[in-house]
Amino acid sequence: MNDFLKAVSISKTYLNENKKLKVLEDISFSIGKGEILCILGASGCGKSTLLRVIGGFERIDKGEILICGNKVLKPSADMVMIFQDYNQLFPWMTVLENVLFPLKVNKIGASAMQRIEISIEYLKLVGLEDFKNYYPHQLSGGMKQRAAIARGLALKPSVLLMDEPFGSLDAITRSNLQNELLDIWRKTEVTIVFVTHDINEALALGDNIIVMDKTPGRIKERIKNFQERPRNRRSDEFLDLYEKIYSMLDVQI
């Protein structure tokens, strides 16, 4: 059960002006179904690249990604990525159309009516039902990210890949969205791989936290986070873990 999503000694190099740049080196981990894994690291540590590799967006030099034992070769609707960029919604579609679109493409739902019902159900889940006929440019950043999550979840993927999705939001909105995400996660039992550079975020969300090292990107430490949910961000346990991770991140003073 612990091998639901598995990375086996992943390595990747970029070729930049004829110079090889190693971005990922020998990365292995595995998580169970329905867990939240946070990948934490400073900018440029390769954590986003790792996420793209998991999603099948990037080729790798060595290693493999397995989901339920099957190799991941290209992006699929079974692992949906939520990007940091607000503009991942298609601007030419309304919020509802954005959610409907992948359902149509993947022929989910028996009829058009049913697809609309599914879409509205997921928009309700993220609290955007009243905005279903808005175009993305009429929404705030947080609303756009919630709509993107609804679009991804409507496909009922087994994994949600999230690349600092709340990274550009203000602190209040971010905390709210983290709580909402946990709520959704509880309801849908989706497995989440969540990339962040924010220790608080990782501690609030993750069952497991992988702390990345820089150049080349390697796993420095894997931390189990056994805190009960809802987590108190002021508890000793939380603060101790924070200290522990903070010291790992080589912050120069």
Binding site: K74, P75, S76, Q88, F90, P102, R151
Partner: peptide, 29 residues
């Protein structure tokens, strides 16, 4: 065309000529 649109398109399972009609053309409007 912003790469994110094609990434999302691939991710959501849009392929081939569909990718062009539903993403490339509106994105290049």
């Amino acid at each position: 065309i912003p790469r994110i649109f094609t990434d999302v398109g691939h991710n959501l399972g849009v392929r081939g000529i569909h990718l062009i009609s539903t993403i490339y053309i509106p994105a290049s409007m």
